[in-house]
Design a protein around this nucleic acid. Sequence first.
RNA 1: GCGCCGGUAGCUCAAUUGGAUAGAGCAUCGGACUACGGAUCCGAAGGUUACGAGUUCAAAUCUUGUCCGGCGCGCCA
Length: 561
Amino acid sequence: MDEKKERLEKLLTQVVADLAREKDVSLPDDFCAQLERPRHEGHGDWATNTAMQLTKRFGMPPRDLASEIASRLRTVPGGDLIEKIEIAGPGFMNITLKSAWVADLIADILAKRDDFGRCNIAWGKKVQVEYVSANPTGPLHIGHARGAVVGDILSSVLEFCGWEVGREYYINDAGNQMELLGRSTQARYFALLGREAEAPFPEDGYQGDYLTDIAQSILDAQGKSLADKPLAETLPLFTDESYRQILATFRKDLGDFGVLFDVWFSERSLYDGDEVEKSIAALKERGFAYDQDGAVWFKSTHFGDDKDRVMIRANGVPTYFTSDVVYLKNKYDRGFDYLIYVWGADHHGYVPRMKSVNEAFGGKDEAFVVVLIQFVSLLRGGVPVAMSKRAGSYVTLREVLDEVGPDAMRFFLAMRRCDSHLDFDLELAKKSSSDNPVFYVQYAHARICSILREVAARGVAMPAITRLDVSVLTDPTEAALVKTLSRFPEEVAKAGTELAPHRMAFYAQELAESLHAFYNAQRILGVEEDVMNARLLLVEATRVVLRNVLRILGISAPEKM
RNA sequence: GCGCCGGUAGCUCAAUUGGAUAGAGCAUCGGACUACGGAUCCGAAGGUUACGAGUUCAAAUCUUGUCCGGCGCGCCA
């Protein structure tokens, strides 16, 4: 299908160029006639608005120009794969191909199977996707879950588009927050012993119950003796144990959620070698860093920032910003051509600064991409649930996962475009009923499997692809299903270039809808043999594509429900 | 105050990046298999795309002004 589209586009471009030469009209140097999917049913396989775009240059009404182009297109060599051309509306050309392409498409799907829909728009380049990267100071909540799903699906989409993808989690295991975490747990430990006065809970400490649990586990493992040592001496133990335990739950929760990483990158590890010194030296060499007032500064004003930013404080301690600077350089040093950061929208103010850093290191502008994820409003039966990490009263990823299950949760979180707010109603998502779109999609898959089981039970053999006669597929629902199937590679490519994973969720629903409509309109078994064979192959092709899109979404494709 | 993201059907959201009659799902109403799974299908109703002005063959989309909602502006992370 794609090759046919390209051939048609070349043909169209050629025809327009010839016409322009004859009429002595100039075309833009980079002119290329573009075909697109018609928006409405029954408008053919491809459409173009070329005539409308050129109406001014040719000085002709779009309708007349379209007719002129269409009549030439039919007669030009290679135009024989066109069944018909219709001029519609204000000058659209709707092109219908001869039906041989349907047989090609189904054969293509059944030959490529799991690989159908793959493309190579990356040319073997390496991209890193960094996502979640939540501070290991408290449980993952629903906002993290959205970032996790978006990052995960985006990575899968990019892999399907031919990228070599590195999935990475950045662990913020350095800095003040870690110390605060340790002190919070330490205070809980003393509280368990009834000795709060000796280690009061920090004013802005982490208040969730999970720290009491961790304190209890330390008490179980180490006994009471830690309370008799100086606070400063035992603090690292509390810090590290809290961090270790919380990170372990992150791995478990995300793993159960189907979100896996190639690398869990430790912020602390940036400080093991001389990477920090090297990074700062590199910036100074380029004139983007300097010393002043005992601190080291990044010259962000050069890139339009209000003021320069501190990298190393006067007391010698690096800022969080410095870690990100070194980390960015580290990513490039590891050979990634493109860097994608999936961040919460509350970090948007930080984006220009990091773009500056990218530029300061000589990185290409388009190589540094931030996908901002808007907030998730969590509702319970229509009533907003407060989410405050500090207060510790929020709904965790784990709770939602246990209530809703990974499939429905992933689908709900992937359904919206990243830059719009998302309402997630627990009561709604918990309902395993018909208004849950994930069941709709999975049911389509299960339904096909059920048909294939029935085929086997009746002793009918799956026909060979060579037996396919597409001329019997005349029903509108069959045509619609074929067209939806043919769109899959484009949708994957679009989702990849636009970094828009929600497209996959929408496509999955559309494909399921096409299948259900076809199923209700026509019978597959118990009809004339040629028709049955064609429909069986069509349905099998649909199953393959459904499975592929569900695999990208990270959602199971059940054979029974 | 400055900046970023939104505002589309009663609700939650799409819209091939400037193209045709702005589309889906819930919810509402009315219909559909004695046969492959009714967790399905078909139909109806629902719109001044927050509001005004501008740009052109063409605007939900671009420019600009205003209004509303969310978020961000530390030698915190």
